[in-house]
Design a protein around this nucleic acid. Structure first.
Length: 500
RNA sequence: GAGCCGGUAGCUCAGGCGGUAGAGCAUCUGCCUUUUAAGCAGAGGGUCGCGGGUUCGAGUCCCGCCCGGCUCACCA
């Protein structure tokens, strides 16, 4: 008999004993008077005298540690990442409650009623007068010193990670505050939150391979969206001048520390502005989001102090000149010269070569929040080109910690130009570029009704969370990152065998 | 997709050059009414990721596979 099975059998026996004592091993509603955090905040710095007259409390939580002595014992409860000690002595509770207490083990969830006091060593503690049993753990908790270290188990069983590693809570708290902050800021500026299709008959708005699914009743294939862009712009056509969406995109590509197949994007569109307007807006959004999520505009990331209070700005060509490494630093004229570009990249067009050089040489050096603007038009099929330089698009990205965090542009609203860009994408597709855009005629039709000049931007929420939370892998900021399925666990069989 | 690293008790980890598989936590038994990683005494617990091979003998060496991590490639 394996240990795991033996432990399970022991604990099921305890379930029986708990029931025999007259407690419900899987209890019901427990009306606590305070969370453990509230108790720490209200009485954490009060002296023993200040805890008179007695403060009665009802608390609950999961047992973290147990220290049993002959006729008494201590335990730490955990609730919402906060810890509080309880003290149970045999002459302070009923015989039945004391029997229950001796039966508890780390991981069990209990309720306790009593009064606050300070121990000899000064720790704020609940002197228990009544115990309630709320839920039995049947499986062992991870080790209390190191927590749960195994990365695979942490991701597969995130609930266990959250129980064992309180610092993981912090990451997801930051993520939640970040999203909340962005939503609040946009709403304050008159943006309306909308939801557009995740299942799309045509995919577009980005260059990526899609996931395909099938609708039975209509008998059609549908794609999980790679971006919401084309639908959000339809809403701009329809007269919702400020819209945003915070939701998942799906891209059928490799998994890495910076890529998860499903990831969360904020996209927002504002009529009557352009990419310059969005640069200013982005600066405000990021500054406030960092502040709301972490309490500061300066955060630590992989040994750097990232300052979210401002965004440096370089055109892509300036950035190549400015961040060139080694000999042969180009001039601004060089990076405009197709000959120079083709000597430094194998890509077909000057624009693709510039992007290639930028990504190889510059991007990883952009640690502080930085705007890179003016992208070659051939890599930006949905962006308006610059009036004085039609080979370039009014587009920028925000790069932080070497990662692309945002992408924005003045939206292309000329339907004839958009049709030409789609045609070019179709030619690229015909040459085997799977990620080139499809022709979306309904989107074209929408533009034909007239879309006001508009600025649009997407912000990668996962990557921004990584930066704000100091996480080096995107999987650390996604509660349930995609993993290969683990295969049979065998727990149901064991439970079945022990169910008598 | 490639390279490197890892998978040993429920958890965290040790296991030189091939020779009877270990520790701490957790569990079980006993003692202990202010402990703090509580303590003390004892006990149980192993498909060494899976499958082959070499060998008198494999956790250890070789081959294949599975799962994970990192780096690179891919991802405008």
């Amino acid at each position: 008999m394996s240990l795991e099975f033996e432990l399970l059998a022991q604990r099921l026996e305890k379930v029986r004993q708990i029931r025999e004592l007259g407690y419900e091993p899987y209890g019901r509603r427990f009306d606590f008077t305070h969370t453990l955090g509230e108790i720490r905040r209200h009485w954490g710095d009060k002296s023993a005298e200040e805890l008179e007259p007695r403060v009665q409390v009802r608390v609950c939580g999961r047992i973290h540690t147990l220290r049993l002595m002959g006729r008494a014992g201590f335990a730490h409860l955990m609730q919402e990442g906060e810890r509080l000690q309880i003290y149970v002595r045999s002459d302070a509770v009923s015989e039945r409650d004391y029997k229950l207490f001796r039966m508890l083990e780390p991981g069990d969830i209990i309720g306790a009623e009593g009064y606050l006091f300070r121990t000899r060593t000064g720790e704020l503690t609940v002197h228990v007068e009544r115990l309630e049993f709320l839920a039995k753990t049947l499986l062992s908790m991870p080790e209390k010193w190191h927590g749960l270290e195994d990365v695979e188990t942490r991701y597969r069983q995130r609930y266990l990670d959250l129980i064992a590693n309180p610092e993981v809570r912090r990451i997801f708290l930051i993520r939640s505050r970040l999203i909340s902050s962005l939503r609040r800021q946009l709403e304050k500026r008159g943006f309306m939150e909308v939801e557009t299709p995740m299942m799309q008959p045509l995919y577009g708005g980005a260059a990526a391979r899609p996931f395909v699914t099938h609708h039975n009743a209509l008998d059609i294939d549908l794609y999980l969206r790679i971006a919401p862009e084309l639908y959000l712009k339809r809403l701009i056509v329809g007269g919702f001048d400020r819209v945003f969406e915070i939701n998942r995109n799906f891209r059928n590509e490799g998994i890495s520390t910076h890529h998860n197949p499903e990831f969360t994007m904020l996209e927002f569109y504002q009529a009557y502005t352009d990419y310059r307007g969005l640069m200013d807006l982005s600066e405000e959004l990021l500054r406030q989001a960092a502040l709301d999520a972490t309490g500061s505009t300066v955060v630590e990331y992989e040994g750097h102090r990232l300052d979210f209070s401002r965004l440096s700005r370089y055109s892509m060509r300036e950035a190549v000149v400015e961040f060139w490494r080694g000999p042969g630093r180009p001039t601004l004229d060089d990076v405009r010269d197709p000959g120079w570009l083709s000597r430094h990249s194998t890509r077909a067009t000057p624009g693709e070569a510039l992007v290639d050089i930028f990504e190889r040489v510059v991007e990883e050096q952009l640690i502080q929040p930085t705007i890179i603007y003016d992208f070659p038009v051939e890599t930006s099929p949905l962006a308006k080109s610059k009036p004085d330089e039609p080979d370039f698009a009014e587009r920028f990205e925000i790069i932080i910690g070497g990662m692309e965090v945002a992408n924005a542009y003045s939206e292309l609203n000329d339907p004839q130009e958009q049709r030409r860009r789609f045609d070019e994408q179709l030619r690229m597709r015909a040459r085997g570029d799977e990620e080139a855009h499809q022709m979306d005629e309904d989107f074209l039709r929408a533009l034909c009704y007239g879309m006001p000049p508009t600025g649009g931007e997407g912000i990668g929420i996962d990557r921004l969370t990584m930066l704000l939370a100091g996480a080096s892998s995107i999987r650390e900021v996604i509660l349930f990152p995609l993993l290969r399925p683990e295969g049979p666990i065998g727990l149901a069989d064991r439970l079945r065998e022990l169910d008598r």
